[in-house]
C-alpha cells in the first residue's frame, strides 16, 4: 500500500484582526491527503486558503489546530526533517535578483548540505533541464518572468526533495511562458516518485497538470477526486446562454425552472448556466421558452462538463465570478 506523502487533518488557522481588516478564518477544518508520486492540485479562488495550507505544510506557518504530516513527519514536531524533505516554490519569485542563476542554485544546494562541487554539478544539471544554461552566469534581475519562474522551480529541486510545493506557479506569466512551465512541471511528476502539491486558480492548469484535485472554498475542501471523476459526477451537459440584457427580475430563472430535464440554473448578469440531461434536446426547448417571452439571446453553447462546472456545482458560484470579486 502506498503511504501518503502529505496528510492534513482538520486544519484550522485564524488570522487575528488587524488594522482595517477583520478577523479572518483562513482554514476551517481543511482535510486532504496525497499519495506518494501524485500531483495534487489545490484549486480555489484567491483567499480560499490555498497558500495558507502550503505555508503550514512547509513549516512556515502554524495551524491553530489540526495535524499535518509530510512524508510521515509532523510539521510541528519534526520541522527539521520536514524542511529537508520538501522543496518550496513560493508564489512570489524566490531567487536573489542580484546573484546569477548558478549562484542562486549553488547557495541553495549548499544550505541543504551539498558539497561545493556537488552543488555546482547539480546547478548545471538543473540549468540544462530548464533550458537556462545560456543565462546561468547572468544576474537573475536580467531574466524574463518565465525564466525567473523556471529558476524558482529549479531552486525547489536542488536537493532532490520528496515533495515539491508549487504555489501558483504560473500566475502573472504570459501564455507562452505558462505553456512552457506546464511542460516542465508535467515532466516532474514522473520523476523519482516526486509528490507535487500545486495550488492554482487556473482551471485549465489544474486540469492539465493534476492527477488529483481538491477544490477549496472558504478554508475547506469541498470536493476531491481526479479531474475526470469530478467531471463524470456531473451528469449530462452544460448549457451556457448569453442574454442581451441581465435577468434582473428573475424571469429567465423561472422560465427555465419549469422546463423538464433542466437543473442547477445559475444566472449571473447576462450569463445563464444550466445543467441538462441531453444538450441536443434541451437547447431547442430552452430557446423556445425564452423566445415565447421575447427574451433576446446573443449566443448559446453546449459543452461537456468542465472543471468550471465542477467548481460551480460545489461552491455555488462560477469560478469567473469569484475571480471577479477577488480582483
Amino acid at each position: 500500500m502506498a503511504t501518503d506523502a502529505l496528510e492534513a487533518v482538520d486544519l484550522v488557522k485564524t488570522y487575528p484582526a488587524g488594522r482595517k481588516k477583520p478577523r479572518l478564518r483562513a482554514l476551517d477544518g481543511l482535510t486532504f491527503s496525497v499519495p506518494e508520486g501524485v500531483v495534487l492540485g489545490l484549486l480555489g479562488p484567491n483567499g480560499a486558503g490555498k497558500s495558507t495550507t502550503v505555508k503550514i505544510l512547509t513549516t512556515l506557518s502554524r495551524a491553530d489546530s489540526g495535524t499535518a504530516r509530510v512524508v510521515g513527519y509532523d510539521v510541528n514536531r519534526s520541522q527539521e526533517q520536514v524542511r529537508r524533505s520538501i522543496g518550496y516554490v513560493p508564489q512570489k519569485s524566490s531567487s536573489d535578483p542580484l546573484a546569477t542563476g548558478v549562484e542562486n542554485l549553488v547557495l541553495s544546494g549548499r544550505i541543504y548540505g551539498l558539497s561545493r562541487s556537488l552543488a555546482v554539478r547539480r546547478a548545471s544539471e538543473l540549468l540544462e533541464r530548464f533550458e537556462l544554461t545560456a543565462v546561468g552566469d547572468r544576474p537573475v534581475k536580467t531574466y524574463s518572468g518565465g525564466m525567473q519562474r523556471k529558476l524558482d522551480v529549479a531552486l525547489g529541486l536542488v536537493h532532490r526533495p520528496r515533495v515539491l510545493f508549487l504555489d501558483e506557479p504560473t500566475t502573472g506569466l504570459d501564455p507562452e511562458a505558462r505553456a512552457e512551465l506546464w511542460n516542465e512541471v508535467g515532466r516532474l511528476s514522473g520523476d523519482e516518485g516526486l509528490t507535487v502539491l500545486l495550488t492554482t486558480h487556473y482551471l485549465e492548469e489544474a486540469d492539465w497538470l493534476a492527477d488529483q484535485l481538491a477544490i477549496v472554498d472558504h478554508g475547506k475542501v469541498v470536493a476531491e477526486g481526479t479531474p475526470e471523476a469530478l467531471k463524470a459526477e456531473l451528469r449530462g451537459d452544460s448549457v451556457h446562454v448569453e442574454l442581451v440584457s441581465p435577468d434582473t427580475d428573475g424571469l429567465v430563472h423561472r422560465l427555465l425552472s419549469d422546463l423538464p430535464g433542466v437543473g442547477e440554473i445559475v444566472v449571473e448578469g447576462n450569463v445563464l448556466r444550466a445543467r441538462v440531461d441531453h444538450g441536443a434536446t434541451a437547447v431547442p426547448a430552452v430557446l423556445g421558452a425564452l423566445e415565447d417571452k421575447a427574451v433576446p439571446v446573443t449566443a448559446v453553447t453546449v459543452s461537456r462538463p468542465s472543471l468550471d462546472d465542477v467548481y460551480l456545482r460545489y461552491t455555488g458560484r462560477s469560478f469567473r465570478s469569484v475571480e471577479g470579486e477577488a480582483a
Partner: peptide, 16 residues
C-alpha cells in the same frame, strides 16, 4: 527586499 520577493519564505522553509 527578501520578504517582498519569496526569498525569505524559501529560506525559512529550508533547514537554514
Amino acid at each position: 527586499a527578501d520578504m517582498e520577493r519569496g526569498v525569505m519564505d524559501r529560506m525559512l522553509a529550508s533547514p537554514v
